[in-house]
């Protein structure tokens, strides 16, 4: 009971710090800490998958993306926005209190009316064994509700193309912070890179039986990419070569082709034939989402070797 209160309170206080008062930089840092505590909360609530996802994607990658965006905005030193008028903040306060009250009351009512007959979940638990998968979440994502996952990967792809459209110019002159010239970085990269790769592959493989899976693995790859970009080992390329574009697209493409392939051999649409198909799709998604997140971080159409 105490831990619940402690974590819940921590979350609210950190959100308060991140959103209200203080400088923006401090808000971003607090937001990343909020992500960490949320990871603990998911773990405490009993969902290791979500904990890992929140840590890797929610706090890690999102935090990095916001930080680099903050850094770029400071370089453009855009005009300082005006303070909101007092009337507006009073109105906002009223709306916020109303919303909190509504969600709180409804939440409590929903919790008290918990019937516990979550039919869908019970059916899922029964049918999971004959898919050969141990981890229910991977089962739901890849086998039972795989249309959601397919469209989700398409969302990531759409987000990437739309971001490229918004940033416009083909050449990658979006600024990146200079790589620190300290000797310590080389050993860091040399040890971390292979280790991250191994852990990512392990997570992918373990995903079918234990908590883990494509999304957590892709976030790890993205983190590795971010590290390489920041330490200057990898630089933004002017144009996206064929390989990069294929990498971006492979997740969605493989999923669609497997789905359509099933139709050809008479199985229902998007039915997953076996474990090998699960791994194939997860690997493709890992590569595609990881690469997309790194490119979004670098703000470039592609990656190239040495960065000057």
């Amino acid at each position: 009971m105490v831990i619940d209160v402690f974590l819940a309170l921590g979350l609210v206080v950190l959100a308060w710090q991140a959103l209200i008062g203080g400088s923006l930089f401090r808000g971003i840092v607090m937001f990343i800490v909020f992500g960490m505590v949320l990871t603990l909360a998911w773990a405490w609530l009993g969902s290791p998958d979500l904990a890992m996802a929140e840590a890797a994607i929610g706090a890690g990658v999102t935090g990095a993306l916001i930080m680099i965006a903050y850094w770029r905005l400071r370089r453009i030193n855009a005009v300082e926005p005006r303070d909101p008028s007092p009337a507006r903040s009073r109105l906002a306060l009223v709306i916020a209190v109303l919303a909190t009250g509504l969600v709180g009351a409804i939440g409590l009512a929903a919790v008290s009316a918990l019937t516990g007959d979550a039919t869908a979940a019970r059916v899922m638990n029964e049918t999971l064994p004959d898919t050969g998968l141990g981890n229910p979440i991977t089962g739901v994502l890849i086998v039972f509700r795989n249309l959601d996952t397919l469209l989700e990967v398409a969302v990531v792809l759409a987000a990437y193309i739309a971001a490229r459209a918004a940033l416009g110019r083909e050449s990658a002159d979006l600024p990146l912070p200079p790589a620190p010239d300290t000797p310590l970085l080389t050993p860091l990269v040399v040890t971390l890179a292979p280790l991250t790769m191994v852990v990512a592959i392990y997570l992918l493989k373990a995903g079918s039986q234990y908590p883990g899976g494509a999304f957590q693995a892709s976030a790890l790859l993205a983190a590795l990419g971010v590290l390489l970009v920041l330490t200057g080992r990898v630089g933004p390329a002017a144009a996206a070569n064929w390989l990069t574009r294929a990498g971006l697209v492979i997740g969605t493409l493989v999923f669609c082709l497997v789905g359509l392939g099933m139709l050809v051999i008479g199985a229902p649409l998007l039915a997953i034939p076996g474990i090998w198909a699960v791994y194939l799709i997860e690997a493709a998604m890992m590569i595609s989402i990881g690469l997309t997140l790194v490119l979004l971080f670098a703000g470039a159409p592609g990656l190239s070797g040495k960065r000057s």
């Binding site: 574009r245 697209v249 969605t252 669609c256 139709l263």
Partner: peptide
């Protein structure tokens, strides 16, 4: 039905590559 949804998505991927 699959053609209605998946064909444009696959085509989008191909158009990118």
């Amino acid at each position: 039905l699959a053609c209605l949804v998946l064909v444009p998505v696959v085509a989008a991927c191909l158009a990118l590559v």
